[in-house]
Every structure is written in structure tokens, then in C-alpha cells.
Design a protein around this nucleic acid. Structure first.
Lengths: 140, 140
DNA sequence: ACTTGATCTAGACCGTCCTCTAGTTCGTAG
DNA sequence: CTACGAACTAGAGGACGGTCTAGATCAAGT
């Protein structure tokens, strides 16, 4: 299930940044904001050591963020997971609500796409016919 | 082609806000930022009078914004349209690039949706089986 | 030992996109 | 004439989601 094939070697923040696409800044920021489930382990020197489970959680976070879940809600979700079993119903509600939002978003985007595609088509035609068209309705 | 059936009665800012869903603040802001094509007409008293063409342009703006076009780019597009014919190729490039971004966005969202749907499914099953599952992998 | 580069913390800062405020004016109904 | 809501301007303010800085420390190579 692990997304990375690494066995159990803990990863440095830089490695995690590379694997996830998040900046090291963002990784620290997420941690400070309480967006992670467990506390990240540290070396004796104080450096973070991420497990693959940590990375997997981050990858989920990224998907949720990418699809527009606000940090506050992500934080809420992390809290629920952190507090262990017993609140699955609430987690489900949260995810389900988000899923609905994502679906609405996709619909909205598809509508936008078709509007844009229409305009692109019109401009394309206009150009293909040579630019002799003169002033034509800009709001088409 | 007009999106509103009103013949030629100009509209007040409040009416336009109602029709478009933008706030009056946002309407003034858009104007200040140069996001509109023509200057909005004014009454002798200085109040804005929107034509249906203005509203149509706003509706386009809304679609572009909704699909993530930044204001700066929208402004650029408005400038091109404002400066009349002769730059259709550039308008087309701009719209086309945006369309590609929208498509990429839709793809990304669909991926997110499937990830989320999987989790929703797992939580749903878990709950259906009764909450006796105990601690299970939170990163599933 | 020295250098180099990655990491650490706390907090300041930033871009984007509006929203809201303050104080004023317009214009329509009574 | 008065009053009231809607609109006006310029500019401050705010939410969001990070990014960046400063100055210090850690760890690995030579």
C-alpha cells in the first residue's frame, strides 16, 4: 500500500519535499499547523525523520488540498484520525461532503470548458477565414 | 445571444450584482482593475449604467475566473478585446492556453475524486460492519 | 579543523482577490 | 422639504496559503 517502495528508511525533510512536491517550507508549515496525524520523529540532532506512513498521509493531504479542501478542514480531518477509532462516522461525513464539492467543481469546470471551447472555436474560425472580419461582437 | 432578456434598459450596479452573483464591491473592483472592456456609462449623477453587453462580458469573466484564470490574465484579455480587431491570434492563444489548463484541472480533480471515493468507500464499509474494527490504517 | 550544505525555529512578509469602512451624494417616495 | 436607501470614492483590511529571512546548528566530506 505504500506509495514509495522504500522499506523503512526514514526520510529527511528534503527527501520528502522531493517525493511529494511540497517545499520544505510547506512541510514545516503543515506540521506547525497541525495538519499531520502523528508527530514527526526527530533525530537526536532535532532533524525530522519521516516514515513512509507520514509520506502517505502527506500524499492524501495533497489530493485533498488540490481538490480545494481548506487547510482548516484538513486540520479537522487530521485531528479526527489522530484521535483514533470511534469517530469514523464524522470522518466519513467530512470526506463525503468534500467529495460532493469536488463533483460540483468538476461540473462547473466542464461548463467553463465548454464556454471557452466555444469562444476558441469562434476565434479559430475567424482567423482561418483571414482577418478581414472587422469588428465583431467581442462578447460572443 | 444576450443572456438577459431585457431589451435595452440599462441596469444599476445593484441589479447587475443580482444578475451576476458578483457583489457591488466586486463590480466596482473589477472596473477599477481594468477588467471590463468598455467604460461603463454613467448617469448625470455619476451612477453606473450597465448595458446587457456589459453584463454578458461579466458573465464571461465569471466563467474564466471560476475556472481559475487569474485577474491579471483576465485583464490582459480585456485589453486585447478593448483594442479592437487585429489581435485575434493573441486572444486565441490566451484562451487556448487557458482551456488546456482547465482540462488539466478537470483531470486532476477527477483523480482526486477517485482517491476520495476510495476512502469514502472504505469508511462506509467499516461503518456498515459495525465499529468493531479497532485501529485500522488511517492512511488507507 | 574546516567547509559546505541541509536543517532548525520563530516570525515577518507576500500575492491574490476581494470586502469593508467612512464619509458623501443621489434620487425617489411622502 | 425631508428622509431613506442605494450608489459614489479612495483606501484600509482581511482571509488564505504559503514563502522567505535571519541566525544558529547539524552532519558529512577532505
Amino acid at each position: 500500500m505504500a506509495t514509495t517502495e522504500t522499506p523503512a528508511e526514514p526520510l529527511s525533510i528534503g527527501e520528502v519535499a522531493e517525493r511529494t512536491g511540497l517545499s520544505v517550507h510547506a512541510l514545516r508549515f503543515y506540521e506547525r499547523e497541525g495538519l499531520l496525524v502523528g508527530p514527526i520523529q526527530r533525530t537526536t540532532g532535532g532533524r525530522r525523520r519521516y516514515t513512509t506512513a507520514d509520506v502517505d498521509w502527506l500524499l492524501i493531504c495533497i489530493k485533498l488540498r488540490e481538490s480545494g479542501m481548506p487547510l482548516a478542514e484538513l486540520k479537522r480531518f487530521a485531528e479526527l484520525v489522530r484521535h483514533g477509532p470511534g469517530n469514523e462516522a464524522e470522518r466519513l461525513r467530512l470526506l463525503d461532503a468534500h467529495q460532493r464539492r469536488v463533483e460540483a467543481q468538476i461540473q462547473a469546470l466542464e461548463e467553463c470548458r465548454s464556454v471557452i471551447a466555444r469562444k476558441v472555436g469562434i476565434y479559430g474560425e475567424h482567423l482561418a477565414r483571414g482577418e478581414a472580419g472587422g469588428l465583431w461582437d467581442p462578447t460572443v
